[in-house]
Every structure is written in structure tokens, then in C-alpha cells.
Design a protein around this nucleic acid. Structure first.
Length: 848
RNA sequence: GCCGAGGUGGCGGAACUGGCAUACGCGUCGGUCUCAAAAACCGAUUUCCUCACGGAUAUGAGGGUUCAACUCCCUCCCUCGGCACCA
């Protein structure tokens, strides 16, 4: 999605541990099968067949120069899911594309590199080769590249639709400005006061910018999180926190001696009787009027200006000392007609609520701190029921619930109850009204950059702001521009681009020169894959309605807020204008963890990037895939280990030799059976079917690839043990052995597709293994006939007994009591209790 | 501070609705094969005591419930991620 800072150096591969001796010929097998899948169009989806559709989507990447094994995790997981679902009989759609507008390509151009288009398309080419090497397959005929006019035409079209509905608008505002990237950033792109991309401290700049009115959808974006039952809880929590809903009351305070009213938002209207001052943000529009004519007006204005000058960023850090100044004016508290002084304070944010608060020092930490500093009165109106509060000695604000005191007719009520009562009272008396506030801000989408989709708007002297009509889209990016880090869009200096005619009146006009945030591009691409070459409309609505919502979306946790929230917003919008029939885009979401090396996220600057190229050369792609999935639970971060890769490689070698060995057996090599063949056969068959069950359950119930692999390893170990003991005769045992081996190959195939295809062929099978049906297990075969029951004495394991599966409790008890170890533990002690957990365990409780 | 996830051998990690803790893999040690090495194969591997049989001990710390606790309850500690002067 977003571009990554880390780039790996493809020339610097990890050392190969395999040496010249390969455990199996992966280097010839892998390219062969990759070509085969492509030739047989294995991943090309017929979207016309929607009966058993399965839309398996990976977050499309920004085309960086080279991928590392951390990126690989995402694609490998997706590929395994797609192949598995195919074998389950689904018509799988697994498309891929490139989120190819963005800053890195343009920054490279500024440094004197290639034109962004050239470098981007080149990177796309490299990336496709790397994906191919991994054996990760897609329906490439549906490739979507967001920087091409055929795509961004429709990004612009969506902009115009938003504009027509009043959801795209331009306003002058203080915006986050990254001095290094020389562009504005959305609130979501500011991380700890720094630029998301380069970490440079962001400052504030007043600019006229385009916004999307995502706040209009705040309530639905919040409420509909409940619909997303198959999303990780943490992602939903992060989105809910980001939207930040709070319910409260907006109070109208009359300003004493002036006609004006002052609105304050509070969630704690129960504390209204304890309001001892009012605090306004320095940017509040009434500030100048209020201050006018006050004592020492000049000094007051000076300190207000000082507060404004502090960057918004440093003001948002809690360590910053609270500052404020008295305006000389008062409001009247409507509940008791008391005069309350109005202050200007640096801790009040203009962009939240009304930019003004009623301050209740006794019951708010921040107000308490401020009141302490400026010696403002503290009045307790909520008492702690456990220990009465003395306002003179209190050392911190009491913010808990309690009992109302000093609050007129509300005295004695529990504070929680009075929130509702006072709110009702306020509405009745018209002192104010109940409202809801959100932290979510409108989405700032203007970027002073070249490499993005131009905002399709025209400024006409007569008609004003005019949207470019559909038939004139796309507004093409001009080819030749000068890349200069001026802080203004390079498009501004391209006369042919800027000067145009008004689409309405045909008189001379100028174009908007800013481009769109690339997150606009990525918030609808999943719709385009269904009909990627559609030229008359963004997509075919009927078909899109059949294929979406996406059945499985897979990507990194870093997009928990930005991309996923924006995509949900755009989907809801397109739903509301009636061109799609669903209002949530992604039914199941899986967020995989990062791959860590030497304790840190892989990055070029840290020099800890593991490139797949060297690994694939030494061990093959299947080994890299296997290890990547075996490393740990895929949703968690995991530390990369080169030793672990070798272990995965050795395992594939063992499987390869097992298959070769069994084929030899089938030809009638070896002749001596060394022990009871029937029991061996039965045990092996049981293990085989238990493994089928375990693997299928682990894939269906979440992506537990690590336990899937360990289960298959167990089966391989057991099968290898059996193989050693077997003759070549075509009897029950060799049959079970063949069954075990075939199933091992099938169960492994989504994970290590190349070697699986090759072994499948060695076993004499005709078609691609991915055309074969996923096995089901025999319910009877998985039942153990003989059980080993652990025997505990007073909860401690002391012995084990072997019993037939159907044994009744009486017989079991008899056998346990006869066990010599149990006998010696019991000695002459009385048995107080005898607990039998059927098929699991026996616990004999005795006195000590 | 608030919200979320987590803490299990030397390491990555397993353990379903409370029922054999440490599966599987890595590493280490010992062995087979080899002139030798690599690969492969076999065996051992929580810790402590014991020649051994065996015993004791252990899932961040402490308490509780239970015949039985990694799992449930209470108190606390630590790590990671998100949000954070949001009224």
C-alpha cells in the first residue's frame, strides 16, 4: 500500500548453506512449474462463474525497487489461501496490482534520477519477477496500475462524484506540512508529531486545500464495525479510537455585558455547578472581541500570539506547561447565575468540540493543574462516597463517579444519573443541547506534488469552481515537468496544463494544480479488479455486486487505520450513490505480523534486510515459503533465522526421499517385513487421517500454518519409520503407505507448490495437483482402537495403562487398580475418589 | 494515563470447551557411516538430586477455586503495539 522505506539490495543475498549438493533439484523444478501454471492459466479466473466465488485479495504494494522476506510473508500467505481454496472447489479470484503513485519515485526524480513513470514501471517489472520467483501466482490479466490514466480517470471520477454530493470541498485551514517532503499530510499521516514517511517534525501552514467530508460518515464508520465480525479485534478498536466518539452537552453561556453567546462542549455536565472558569483556545474566533478594551490589552494579546505561535504539534504533547491569560470578561453560569471568568489557555484545542470549555478544576486533571498555577477557585460538586473530599487539601482532581453536592436541586443524586437529569433540564430551559463529538477530522487530500492523480477541478473567473465533466476525464498528467523541491506542485509551472477553458462557459480558466493523496487511489482498487479494462465506467456494478465484499483480505497491520478506514468510507459513499449494493468492502480481514531481523524491523538503513534472491538460489522458493509459514503464528511478529531456513530445506529433502523410497517399494525392491504388518498399516492409516483432519481444521479455523506444518512433519516422520520396515509386496501395508505419501504431498501442496507438483507427477498422477480435490478424512479411521490412559494419583502422573477404546468404567478401574505402579503408590491408603475422564485420564484420589 | 495483544526449555513456538506441559522445528551433546569432512541416519536434551530405577521441580510473581490450572478468579510486575491536554 504505502511505500516502504526499506529496500533490499538484490546483489547482497544471504549465503547459501546448501552448497553444491542439493537435497532435491529445486532449481529445475521451480521454473518448470511456474511456467506450467502460467500456460495452463491456473490462476486466471472466469468471473462469469460466481456460484462458488472466492475473492482472495492481497493489499496491493507500492512498487519499491526490491522486496525482502518480510514483504514475502504477505504474498505467500495469500498464495497458500488461494491454492487451498481452489482445491476446496472454489472459483478463486486472486488479482494483483500496484499502488504506483507516490513520493519516492518523485523524490528520486528530483535527485536527478528518472522520470517517475519510467522508474515506477521499471520497479513494477522487477517486482513481478520477484513475485514469480516465489511461486506466488495471480490473475495477471487483471493487473491494476493506479498511475495509469485508464485507472486514475476513475479516481478523478470518484472525486467529482464526491464533489457533486458536497463531500469534497475546499477550505483554507491550518494543515500539517512536512518541510522535508514539501507537502501537506493528512492527520492520519502524522505520527508522533512527525511525518509518517520521513519522521521530520511536521509544522503548521495555512493553505487552501481540498478535503473529503469523511466526518459525515463518522457514525456509520463506527457503528458498522460491529458488522465486521471476522476482523481482528485490535483493528476495530484502533478504528473506534480514531473515530473517537463522545456524547455530551453543548452549553450556551451568555457573555456578561455583551450580546454574544459562548458555546462549550462537555461530557461531564454533572459538574456544571463546579465550573470556576471558562477556557478558550487561542485560535477561538471570539478571542479578539473579548480581549478588546481589557486591562493591559497589549500584553494579553502578546501572550495569546505566543500561544498561537507554538506549533500545534508541541502543544499536543502533555509535558508542555499549561499557559493562559485572563480576558477580563465573564460568562453567566445558567444554573446559578454566577459570574465565571473567561481565560485563554494553550491546552484547549480549536479543532475539537467548540474550542471552548467550562473548566471544573475539582473534577478534571487539566483544569486542576491550570487552576493551581493561576490560583483559580476549586469547588467540589461531586463527593467521593468512600471518603469525603476537602477542596482545601485535595492534591488531585477527583474524576470518578460520586454523589452530587453543592449542586442545587441535584444534590444527593449519584453523578452518573445526574448527567442525564441535568442534560434534560438544560434542554427544557434552552441552556444548551445534547450533542455528539468525534475526534475524526475531514480527510485532507490535496498534495503539492506531481506524481499523483490531478484533482479534476477548474477555476473560472465567471463560473467559479467547476468540476471537470465525465467526458473530459481523465485530466492527464503532463509528461514533461521540472522536478524542483519548491513546496508547490510542479504542475503549477506547466502552462499548457494550467491554462484551460471553463467546461461551462468556455472562457479562459485555470486548473487545480494539486494532486490527490495516494490513499484515494487505493481506496477503491479492489472494485476495479472485477472488470479491469472497463472503459465507459469505473467497473461493472452487477458483476462487482456478485464478487464483493472481498472474501479474504490480507495485509499488514500498519494499514489498520488509514487504508482500511478510507476504503470503508469510499465504499459507503459508492453504496449511497447507488452504484454498488454493499457498504462494507472486506468481509474477512487478516493482518499478518512483521518479520524482524536482529530485533528490528527490516530496513536498509539498519542493514538488516534479508533478500529472498540468495535464499531462493541456495534452497529454492519452496523452502523460503515453508520457513516463512513455519516461523510462528502468522498474525504475530517473528524473528527471521537463517538456521531455521536450513531446517525447512532439510525437511523438504526428507519428504523428497520418502516419496522416492515409496516409489521404489512399489516397484518391488526390498522384501522383508519386520513386524506385524496389520498393526503398522492401521496405525499409519489412522495417523494419515488424523493429519488430514488436523490440517483442514487448522486452515479453516484461522491461518495456523505453523501447526499445519508441524502436523505434516509428524506424519512424514511416522511414514518414514514405517517405510523402513516394509517390503515391496502389494498388500494392505503398502497401500496405507501410498495413501500416506499421497496425502502428505496434497496437504503440503498449497505451501510448497513446486515440489508438490513434481512429486505428484512422480507418483504417476496426470493433472496438476491443484486440480485435485482436497482430501476428506475417514471418520472411522481416526478413532484410536487402543488408548493409553494416563493415571494420576492425587493429580500427579504416576503411570499409564493401555486399554481397548470401548472399555467400560468398571473394567478400566479394575485395570488401573491392578497396575503395579499404582499398587505401590496406594500401599494401604484408602481410595477417596476415582475420577474417570472418558478416553482422556484417570485420577485416583487417596488420603495422604 | 486509556485501549489492545502478550509473558511457556538454550532459541522459534505447541497444548481443542480445565485433563499426559514443553508437540514440531532449530541449537547443543553423544553415536553410526567415512581416510576425513559434509550430507544422511540413530539416540539424548526443563532444571535439580541419583551409577541407575526413580524422585523432586517448573508455564512472569504471589494468592485463590478444583480431584486436576499454561488454561478460570483476585492482586501485582514486565514486554510490545495503538491512542493521548479530545473537554
Amino acid at each position: 500500500m504505502t511505500e516502504y522505506k526499506q529496500n533490499s539490495d538484490p546483489a547482497h543475498g544471504t549465503r547459501g548453506g546448501a552448497g553444491d549438493e542439493r537435497l532435491y533439484p529445486f532449481d529445475t523444478i521451480e521454473p518448470k512449474w511456474q511456467k506450467y501454471w502460467r500456460d495452463k492459466r491456473l490462476f486466471n479466473c472466469d468471473t462469469g462463474n460466481t456460484a462458488d466465488k472466492y475473492y482472495c485479495l492481497m493489499m496491493f504494494p507500492y512498487p519499491s525497487a526490491a522486496l525482502h522476506v518480510g514483504h514475502g510473508r504477505n504474498y505467500i500467505i495469500g498464495d497458500v489461501v488461494a491454492r487451498y481454496k481452489m482445491m476446496r472447489g472454489y472459483n478463486v479470484l486472486a488479482p494483483m496490482g500496484f499502488d504506483s503513485f507516490g513520493l519516492p519515485a518523485e523524490n528520486a526524480a528530483i535527485k536527478g534520477g528518472m522520470h517517475p513513470r519510467t522508474s515506477t514501471l521499471k520497479n513494477i517489472d522487477t517486482m513481478k519477477k520477484q513475485l514469480n520467483q516465489w511461486g506466488v501466482e495471480y490473475d495477471w490479466e487483471r493487473e491494476v496500475i493506479s498511475c495509469l490514466p485508464e485507472y486514475y480517470k476513475w479516481t478523478q471520477w470518484i472525486f467529482v462524484k464526491l464533489y457533486e454530493k458536497g463531500l469534497a470541498y475546499k477550505k483554507k485551514a491550518f494543515v500539517n506540512w512536512c518541510p522535508s517532503c514539501k507537502t501537506v499530510l493528512a492527520n492520519e499521516q502524522v505520527v508522533n508529531g512527525g511525518c509518517e514517511r520521513c519522521s521530520t517534525e511536521v509544522n503548521q501552514k495555512e493553505l487552501e486545500q481540498w478535503f473529503f467530508r469523511i466526518t459525515h460518515y463518522a457514525e456509520r464508520l463506527l457503528k458498522d464495525l460491529a458488522k465486521l465480525t471476522e476482523w481482528p479485534e485490535r483493528v476495530k478498536t484502533m478504528q473506534a479510537n480514531w473515530i473517537g466518539k463522545s456524547e455530551g452537552v453543548e452549553i450556551d453561556f451568555k457573555i456578561d455585558g455583551m450580546g454574544e453567546k459562548l458555546k462549550c462542549f462537555t461530557t461531564r455536565v454533572d459538574t456544571i455547578y463546579g465550573a470556576t472558569f471558562i477556557a478558550l483556545a487561542p485560535e477561538h474566533p471570539l478571542v479578539n472581541t473579548l480581549v478588546k478594551g481589557c486591562e493591559d490589552e497589549k500584553a494579553v494579546l502578546g501572550s495569546i500570539q505566543k500561544m498561537r505561535d507554538e506549533s500545534k504539534i508541541s502543544r499536543s504533547q502533555s509535558e508542555v506547561e499549561k499557559e493562559g491569560v485572563f480576558t477580563g470578561k465573564y460568562v453567566i453560569n445558567p444554573v446559578n447565575d454566577r459570574k465565571v471568568p473567561i481565560w485563554i489557555a494553550n491546552y484547549i484545542l480549536m479543532e475539537y468540540g467548540t474550542g471552548a470549555i467550562m473548566a471544573v478544576p475539582a473534577h478534571d486533571e487539566r483544569d486542576f493543574e491550570f487552576a493551581g498555577k493561576y490560583k483559580l477557585p476549586i469547588e467540589v460538586v461531586i463527593d467521593n462516597p468512600k471518603k469525603s473530599i476537602d477542596p482545601k487539601t485535595m492534591s488531585e482532581a477527583y474524576t470518578e463517579e460520586g454523589v452530587m453536592v453543592n449542586s442545587g436541586k441535584f444534590n444527593g443524586l449519584p453523578s452518573r444519573e445526574s448527567i442525564k437529569k441535568i442534560a434534560e433540564f438544560f434542554e427544557e430551559k434552552k441552556f444548551g443541547k445534547r450533542t455528539v463529538q468525534y475526534k475524526l477530522r475531514d480527510w485532507l487530500i490535496s498534495r503539492q506534488r506531481y506524481w499523483g492523480a490531478p484533482i479534476p477541478m477548474v477555476y473560472c473567473q465567471k463560473c467559479g469552481v467547476v468540476a471537470v465533466p465525465d467526458n473530459e476525464l481523465p485530466v492527464l498528467l503532463p509528461e514533461s515537468v521540472e522536478f524542483r523541491p519548491t513546496g508547490e506542485s510542479p504542475l503549477k509551472f506547466v502552462k499548457d496544463f494550467v491554462n484551460t477553458k471553463c467546461p461551462k462557459c468556455n472562457s479562459p480558466a485555470t486548473r487545480e494544480t494539486d494532486t490527490m493523496d495516494t490513499f484515494v487511489d487505493s481506496s477503491w482498487y479492489f472494485l476495479r479488479y472485477i472488470t479491469p479494462r472497463s472503459s465507459g465506467k469505473p467497473f461493472d456494478s452487477d458483476l462487482v455486486n456478485k464478487w464483493l465484499p472481498v472474501d479474504q483480505y490480507i495485509g499488514g497491520i500498519e494499514h489498520a487505520i488509514l487504508h482500511l478506514l478510507y476504503s470503508r468510507f469510499i465504499t459507503k459513499f459508492l453504496h449511497d450513490i447507488g452504484i454498488i449494493g454493499f457498504d462494507e468492502p472486506f468481509k474477512n480481514l487478516f493482518t499478518q505480523g512483521m518479520i524482524i531481523k536482529d530485533g528490528a524491523k527490516m530496513s536498509k538503513s539498519k542493514g538488516n534486510v534479508v533478500s529472498p534472491d540468495g535464499l531462493i538460489a541456495s534452497y529454492g522458493a519452496d523452502t523460503v515459503r515453508l520457513y516463512t509459514l513455519f516461523i510462528g503464528p502468522p498474525e504475530k511478529d517473528a524473528e527471521w533465522s537463517d538456521r531455521g531456513v536450513e531446517g525447512a530445506y532439510r525437511f523438504l529433502g526428507r519428504v523428497w526421499r520418502l516419496v522416492e523410497g515409496v516409489i521404489l517399494l512399489n516397484k518391488g525392491a526390498d522384501v522383508t517385513a519386520k513386524e506385524s504388518r496389520d498393526k503398522l498399516a492401521e496405525d499409519l492409516r489412522r495417523k494419515t487421517h488424523q493429519t488430514i483432519k488436523k490440517v483442514t481444521d487448522d486452515l479453516e479455523g484461522g491461518f495456523h500454518f505453523n501447526t499445519v506444518i508441524s502436523a505434516i512433519m509428524e506424519l512424514v516422520n511416522e511414514t518414514s519409520d514405517v517405510k523402513v520396515k516394509v517390503s515391496g509386496k502389494n498388500d494392505k501395508l503398502t497401500k496405507c503407505l501410498n495413501e500416506a505419501v499421497e496425502n502428505i504431498v496434497i496437504l503440503l501442496s498449497p505451501i510448497v507448490p513446486h515440489i508438490a507438483e513434481e512429486m505428484w507427477k512422480m507418483l504417476g498422477k496426470e493433472n496438476s495437483i491443484f486440480k485435485c480435490k482436497w482430501p476428506s478424512y475417514d471418520k472411522n479411521a481416526i478413532i484410536d482402537k487402543v488408548l493409553t490412559i494416563p493415571v494420576q494419583i492425587n493429580g500427579r502422573l504416576r503411570s499409564k495403562v493401555e486399554v481397548p477404546a470401548g472399555i467400560d468404567n468398571e473394567a478400566l478401574k479394575k485395570q488401573v487398580m491392578a497396575d503395579p505402579k499404582v499398587k505401590s503408590w496406594l500401599a494401604d491408603k484408602a481410595v477417596k475418589d476415582f475420577i474417570i475422564i472418558p478416553k482422556k485420564l484417570v485420577n485416583v484420589v487417596i488420603s495422604n
